[in-house]
Design a protein around this nucleic acid. Structure first.
Lengths: 351, 351
DNA sequence: TTGTAAGCGTTATCAC
DNA sequence: GTGATAACGCTTACAA
């Protein structure tokens, strides 16, 4: 006598179109509701029914239609990640951290480059995304207001420096402290004339790290010389440009703290070609500890930032918000530690 | 007498829930069908009606519900991008190219890290994605079969080296040619003993570039020495490891072609610390021309690959497939040019 | 435990 | 040019 699974197998399914729950139901000989339950809440259905349904789903090649489920459940199953510049490798590890964490929970990751596309406003609707992770604070104020109103917008988490008394949850590192560590390291090596290479002036990181620099310099009774505050744009090229400026100066600082590693490497590279030796003639400290930092020549002294963890923590924080609903107080701030990594681009000052 | 827009403004809308088309219709005094048309096909509606609807939409703060639209239109408005390793900065520029191109057409980008999440099978359903871009060829055969059947799966484009007689469209660079360029450059500098540093053996890039190396060596009557075929994993660290192996050899090659820039930099870095000078004692060629290559010390000679263009072209190709439907023959292959970039990590052989 | 049936918010078809 | 209405494929009260 033929067992059940065989009789199921024998039913021919028209393969011209993608099978729907209705088709599975017909093959399994149950209602669509039962199929739905068997697939999404297996425990709510009898064991043998479940097996019949699963077999039928396999036989028909059934795949759930996400759009239909999303509409019905009023969710999107996705989180949108706002990246200032996808092409910047600095973000790749953060993104990897976010992706792995969200993927574990079955959420998909929608990436939006805020530099390129002008209007991510549509993404901030909960029919598009169940949540938002923003990797920088430079979002248009109108969008922020929209998010803040919280009317049709999903919860947001900032994975970056952000206005401290703001009302959005965030995961970040202490940039002021990191910058101060860099300055203190240089002071310990005997430097008193210390310059700072920032990114774009409007950038929050530029500002926060500059603050740390200024505080630390003052705390150590070092002059804060306007002329030694250089402006880059976080690129290698801009670092090289700063190096050229430094070369042209009468009154040079003996050490430079750069707001990121790329600029630091750009400085070293340009100086080396001009016959200036780092660290002998100038000490350089970077920020981030990108992969290539420890392989550069000389290996770069820098402030390490846990990029992958920034990603995983911000994703975790967002999911907490998602699960607890908006009920839990939305204010919360995780500050991850930075770490001084001393290599060979800094040296005791010659005298 | 109050004009229309004012009377519209005066209507109070309950803000407790996000407005739907029905609400806009009520405010505008038209049917839901007209609202839908006015918003998505403005030309199909009378000018003044359109204005009334747009005003009503603005007043109510209406945002389209993507889930509903997706279900109705049987599209997802998204493209899924399969990335072998999101944390690898090499991909970031490709991703940026993909994102910018797709964003222009109103498509969103779903990123999936194929190394981390085991089962992206669900993503290959057209209720999830209208199309797929794969950044490497190492997808499970079962998935490929599924895609190939084309039953419920969207069109796919490979942005990578791929089996030449395969049936999927692809955008790639000529890796064999690039590798050959590197070898020829070294041969011109007088090198006869040339080694190759590959990535993981199973990797398609490793294989393709190795082929190019072997052909070029043979064409130039150079020995292909098994011992000089090193194995790395594309990381800086693995480059350093290869350098250590090279140092320990009796019979050293005088030049090394590395399958990517990171490994090349790792080699140089390690050698330099061991007192070996590049290019004096060993010439090094990389592949990719990552940003830091030209700022390294010495600046790296390498084969440039147009990463951003790989992204934009693959996205363009995919959209072509999307618009022309599956009718157009799916076989097609775009090969982008690579370029030899001579810097200072290679030199004429000493004798 | 299972079936029935009412939506989720849009858009496409068909009248008018 | 516009309005009524029937899907799109799924989930979930509610009933049985």
């Amino acid at each position: 006598m033929a067992d059940h699974s065989q009789s199921v197998d024998r039913i021919t399914v028209s393969a011209s179109t993608t099978p729907k729950i209705k088709d599975v139901a017909r093959v399994a000989g149950v209602s669509t509701a039962t199929v739905s339950r068997a697939l999404s809440k297996p425990d709510s259905v009898a064991a043998n029914t479940r097996q019949v349904v699963l077999d039928a789903a396999r036989v028909t090649g059934y795949r759930i239609n996400q759009a239909a489920r999303n509409l019905r459940q009023q969710k999107s199953g996705a989180v949108v990640v706002l990246v200032p510049n996808l092409g910047n490798p600095f973000f790749s590890q953060i993104l990897a951290g976010i992706e792995s964490t969200l993927a574990k929970r079955g959420l998909s990751v929608l990436m939006v480059d805020t530099k390129q596309s002008e209007l991510p406003s549509e993404y901030l609707h909960h029919s598009r995304a169940d949540g938002i992770i923003a990797l920088d604070g430079s979002l248009p104020g109108t969008l922020l207001a929209e998010i803040q109103s919280g009317i049709g917008t999903p919860p947001i988490v900032f994975a970056c420096e952000w206005d401290p008394d703001d009302m959005f949850p965030s995961v970040r590192v202490n940039n002021r402290h990191g910058a101060a560590l860099a300055i203190e390291h240089l002071v310990e090596l005997g430097h008193r004339n210390i310059g700072y290479v920032g990114g774009p002036p409007a950038n929050v990181l530029t500002g926060a790290r500059l603050e740390g620099v200024q505080r630390a310099l003052q705390a150590n009774n070092c002059a804060v010389c306007e002329q030694w505050l250089f402006q880059g744009d976080f690129s290698l090229q801009s670092g090289a440009h700063v190096a050229a400026q430094w070369l042209a100066m009468d009154n040079r600082p003996t050490a430079l703290f750069c707001a990121n590693d790329e600029m630091a490497l750009g400085v070293i590279s340009h100086l080396h070609r001009s016959g200036v030796n780092v660290p002998r003639d100038l000490s350089i400290v970077g920020f981030d500890d990108i992969d290539v930092a420890r392989f550069f020549l000389p290996p770069l002294t820098t402030i390490r930032q846990p990029r992958s963890k920034l990603g995983t923590e911000s994703a975790d924080l967002l999911m907490e918000k998602l699960e607890h609903g908006l009920i839990s107080d939305s204010r919360s701030e995780t500050v991850l530690p930075v770490e001084m990594v001393v290599r060979q681009s800094t040296a005791r000052i010659a005298n």
